[in-house]
């Protein structure tokens, strides 16, 4: 997995952040370039202790019960990354528009960047880190490696979590099912054919 290089993050965020607010217009893109810094807090520089951490959040993450003190306006993605150090969940557009932050909550795929952490209270959250079976990769992860279901890899955790949610509700999906369920996960590298093959291989290997 590539490191979250800052330049990489900003350009993606900027582009996807704007694309996410509706239909993209060239004039607007120009006008909003200066607004890149407002599409998300600089997570790397967030202070460790926040006096605004007034609320208690109880939830399960990857099978473990967690009790955390959080700022009520934190998103689930921020809490996973900053409080629990689960940085496999990526914040890319931070606008609910790309799928990079997809996690599975009570067996359904959701965007962790676009929901409040407090809305996960009492729920069971699974992140990409939760797919490891001991030291072993999950069969979906194996399939993505085998079929080259990635290029830069930035969208991959989200892709895999979407596929994981799909297989929970439909263990034998066909191509159309996969395309439909995963259309909320955008891959800027356009690795779609291999992503599709990876999921199909995972289905096949499981059977």
């Amino acid at each position: 997995m590539s490191k979250d290089s800052e330049s990489n993050k900003i350009s993606r965020r900027n582009f996807l952040g704007k694309a996410g607010t509706g239909i993209v217009g060239s004039t607007i893109l120009i006008s909003s370039i200066g607004a890149a810094d407002k599409t998300g807090p600089d997570l790397a520089e967030a202070p460790p202790i926040d006096p605004k951490e007034t609320d208690i959040l109880n939830l399960w993450v990857n099978g473990k019960k967690q009790k955390l003190k959080i700022n009520p306006s934190s998103t689930l993605a921020e809490v996973l990354r900053n409080k629990l150090n689960l940085t496999g969940t990526k914040i890319v557009c931070n606008q609910g528009a790309c799928g990079g932050c997809t996690v599975v909550m009570d067996n359904k795929a959701v965007y962790a960047c676009h929901m409040l952490a407090l809305d996960a209270a009492g729920k069971k959250v699974v992140t990409i880190e939760g797919l490891l079976e001991g030291e072993e990769l999950n069969h979906l992860q194996e399939a993505f490696i085998e079929k080259d279901g990635l290029q830069c890899g930035f969208c991959t955790p989200g892709q895999i979590m979407s596929a994981y949610a799909l297989l929970l509700s439909k263990p034998n999906p066909n191509r159309e099912d996969i395309m439909e369920a995963m259309s909320g996960n955008i891959c800027r590298c356009g690795a779609y054919p291999n992503i599709l093959d990876s999921v199909l291989l995972a289905v096949q290997n499981k059977n």
């Binding site: 607010t21 607007i28 959701v110």
Partner: peptide, 25 residues
């Protein structure tokens, strides 16, 4: 997308604000 349909509600859907890009910017 599926993720947003798993999160968004019927009430919120009819009360959502417009997408005019000038409004959103």
């Amino acid at each position: 997308s599926l993720q947003l349909r798993n999160m968004g509600t019927v009430g919120g859907n009819i009360c959502q604000r417009p997408r005019c890009w000038y409004y959103r910017e």
